[in-house]
């Protein structure tokens, strides 16, 4: 059975791109979220094997969402998607429970490596 993924990003563009990368690698995209609040709700509902999480989102950012998700499921596997210049935020996200991170612009190979590490 393929691994299930929940993609959280406020940009459709990014969700599409991450979704394409993961889908081509055989993952099943079971849900998408545009806000942190949605991400938490959908995690509880869908219980995906993997979550990709943008940091800057409206209506609860990615870091708080990681915190909430980890509180709900300490074994949740969250991969942060960050941009250049966000090191402090990524560190905070990892302290909040995220397992790894990728940096935009995304390269499929890097995304998949990070995913493998997270699911490892």
């Amino acid at each position: 059975m393929s691994n299930t993924v929940l993609i959280c990003d406020d940009a459709i563009f990014m969700r599409t791109m991450v979704g394409d990368i993961l889908q081509q690698a055989g993952f099943e995209i079971v849900g998408e979220a545009e806000t942190g609040v949605q991400a938490v709700e959908k995690y509880k509902q869908l219980r995906p094997d993997l979550v990709t999480m943008d940091i800057v989102m409206p209506d609860m950012g990615g870091i708080d969402a990681v915190r909430e998700i980890t509180k709900f499921d300490p074994n949740a596997k969250v991969l942060m998607c960050s941009a250049m210049g966000q090191q402090a935020l990524v560190v905070e996200a990892i302290q909040a429970g995220a397992k790894d991170f990728v940096v935009k612009p995304f390269q499929p190979s890097r995304v998949l490596e990070a995913v493998q590490r997270v699911l490892g």
Binding site: F13, A83, M84
Partner: peptide, 11 residues
């Protein structure tokens, strides 16, 4: 920020 992320991805 979102535009930055997308445009960087697009090159």
């Amino acid at each position: 920020h979102t535009i930055k992320g997308m445009s960087a991805t697009m090159g």
